[in-house]
Amino acid sequence: MQKIERGGKVKMPLPIILGVGAAIAGAAGVGSGAYGAIRMKEANDTLKNAEQQHRNNVNRFETISELTSGTMDELGNLELNILKNFDAFSDTMGKIQNRPEFRNYEEQGVKLPEYNPEELEKASAGAAVILGALGGAALGTAGGFAASGVAVSAVTALGTASTGTAISTLSGAAATNAALAALGGGSLKAGGGGVLLGGTVLSGVAAGAALFVGGIIFGAAGDKMAEKADTAYAEMKHAEKTMDDICQYLEELKNIADEYIRSLKKVHQLYMKNFAWVSFTVNNVHKTDWCLFTSEEKKALENTALLVGLLYKMCQVNLVIKAENENEINKINIQAVNEVMQDTEKVSADIL
């Protein structure tokens, strides 16, 4: 029962007071716990969302990287095979007697390299060495040569290994390692990023992209996912912006490479058509005296020599300019590529 004290005040028993206090505290605890659970769920959802978006971004990059690396490999292999097959042209030219010096082509603002049999033979032999060393190489390796200029790389590859042994005498893994090591410095200076086998931009991403993108790293978000949700999400968004830039760059590089492949194939087909005539005349008919050539045969040989110069010029172009800062993406050598493709149109039209 309640006790009434003097003055009319009601005094509650202590057990009742403690019970009421516990109930109030319990209610407050339930509210606090519910709020904490909500916050934990929100943080967990944020973290999962960040992880999923990062995986999607990486998958998108890997897809674009693989497509670009494949296109660049196609270009690199095409250029290497063109240079390698110049040995047939050099052999045929060496059989022709009393041949005059060919004129230097300087028409409509186009200047082609002079016919230099020694340099052409070096480039042809060097291209053969590189092609032999590329067997089983990582995706994007052949494209690395296209990025840095195949002709320069081919001449460099004909040098000697660090052991002093001629690279052309090596084979298998020894040839691969020696050729890639010899090309490292030259190709880097040429702007293609060298032939960095195993180089990656992000762990698990196609190695070829490192040849074209440069040293920029965007994978930090992958290591931040275990931290606070807000931090992880911010890191993911930062990485996403970098990957967006790289993907845009790779797509542009692929488009340029595709266009360059078409232009190169067009010139090469014209070259093969003219050289087939020359080769038949010299190697099948065995007409080796220039003085006995008909005007059509002479013209075919002159055109072939011009097209060799044009193809060699095209194989000298480096599609990628190395960024000065490692935190920047390499640049596409759009001006040089467009200029040489314009040259191909002018020379092809002149020959046709």
Rank of each mutant, 00 (worst) to 15 (best):
Gln53Pro: 10
Ser65Arg: 01
Ala88Asn: 15
Glu259Lys: 05
Lys189Gln: 15
Met236Ile: 10
Asn303Asp: 09
Ser279Lys: 11
Glu240Gly: 01
Ala323Phe: 03
Arg103Asp: 13
Glu227Met: 09
Ala166Met: 14
Thr165Lys: 11
Thr231Gln: 12
Glu324Val: 13
Leu120Met: 06
Ser168Ile: 15
Pro117Ile: 08
Ala23Gly: 11
Ala173His: 07
Ser153Pro: 10
Glu5Asn: 14
Gln342Leu: 08
Ser153Leu: 14
Met272Ile: 15
Leu211Val: 14
Gly36Val: 10
Thr288Met: 01
Asp45Cys: 08
Trp277Ser: 13
Ala175Lys: 12
Ser348Ile: 07
Leu112Cys: 05
Gln269Lys: 14
Ser162Ala: 14
Ala146Ile: 13
Ala206Glu: 11
Asn56Tyr: 05
Thr242Cys: 10
Leu264Ser: 08
Thr141Gln: 06
Asn274Pro: 03
Ile216His: 09
Ile4Cys: 05
Met93Ala: 11
Lys322Asp: 04
Thr304Arg: 01
Gln2Ala: 15
Asn56Trp: 05
Leu134Ala: 03
Glu339Ala: 12
Arg99Pro: 05
Ser348Leu: 09
Ala28Val: 04
Asp244Gly: 00
Gly109Ala: 06
Glu326Val: 07
Asn325Lys: 02
Asp245Asn: 05
Val201Ser: 02
Ala178Lys: 03
Gly159Thr: 06
Gly172Val: 09
Leu83Val: 10
Phe102Ile: 13
Ala154Tyr: 01
Gly109Arg: 04
Gly192Ser: 08
Leu18Thr: 12
Lys41Glu: 10
Gly126Cys: 14
Asn177Val: 15
Gly214Ser: 03
Gly219Glu: 02
Val30Asp: 04
Ile4Met: 06
Gly143Ala: 05
Gly76Lys: 00
Ala133Leu: 04
Leu253Phe: 01
Ala173Gln: 10
Gly36Ala: 13
Leu170Pro: 01
Gly159Gln: 05
Leu14Cys: 04
Tyr35Asn: 11
Met12Trp: 15
Tyr271Met: 07
Arg55Cys: 13
Gly208Thr: 06
Ile351Val: 11
Glu297Met: 03
Glu339Pro: 02
Thr46Asp: 07
Ile261Phe: 08
Met341Tyr: 01
Cys247Arg: 00
Asp244Ile: 15
Leu264Asn: 05
Gly149Met: 03
Tyr312Gln: 08
Lys84Ser: 08
Ala276Glu: 12
